[in-house]
Design a binder for these strands. Sequence first.
DNA 1: AAGGCGCACAACCGCGGGGAC
DNA 2: GGTCCCCGCGGTTGTGCGCCT
Length: 210
Amino acid sequence: MEEEKEYKKGLWTEEEDRILSEYVRVHGIGHWNRVPKFTSLRRCGRSCRMRWLNYLCPSVKHGGFSEEEEDLIIRLHKLLGNRWSLIARPMPGRTDNQVKNYWNTHLRKKLGIKKTKGEVVRMRSSEVVGSSQPAEEAVQKRLQPDKFDVELLPRSEVTVAGDTQSAGEMGNEESQFGIIEFVNNDLFDMPSPGLLEFSDGHPFDAIWQS
DNA sequence: AAGGCGCACAACCGCGGGGAC
DNA sequence: GGTCCCCGCGGTTGTGCGCCT
């Protein structure tokens, strides 16, 4: 794309912010690629979109994270892994980028978490099924879900998001798979009831990351 | 004073999904 | 069904600034 080379990169100036804000005021949100056509702004659409969503949007909260927000991030990250958009969803005024940056610069250090590639702490359903404690209790203990009600569903064929593999095809031991249902699904904009699958050896199982 | 360094935050990039045509 | 456009996501890189020597 020849035209793309002309787009400016780097930090935004006050004047650019003003132009973008005025564009949004007149044309509304969306069709960001039209911004450089309709204005004198020499920024690509994606850059405009990001600047608006992460900074200029009036609903975006600036400033440090509160203890409550920090606690929520920690809990949700433990639960969801690096799914920043999901983590940011129940936090009004916070964007995925903010949450991601805050995690990478503050919380990971604070929690003593090293950056590892693909290291995943998995919960085998044998921990649940094979343990002496009741299945639901085991899940509750692992998730520490002050804000969630979870229950373990009977293991059955699992279709992992966007994948047609059955649970049986993904591993050798049937006991490796399980499903957690979020009974209290207020925090996530998921089809109710929300389902999270976990399994061994599948990319989608990064629910608990260390 | 200055330059090296690390931290915090902003911004970019690659990729993929969904919808319109 | 194929292509294009738009958008969202998550990882990575860039930038500014304060602190230390």
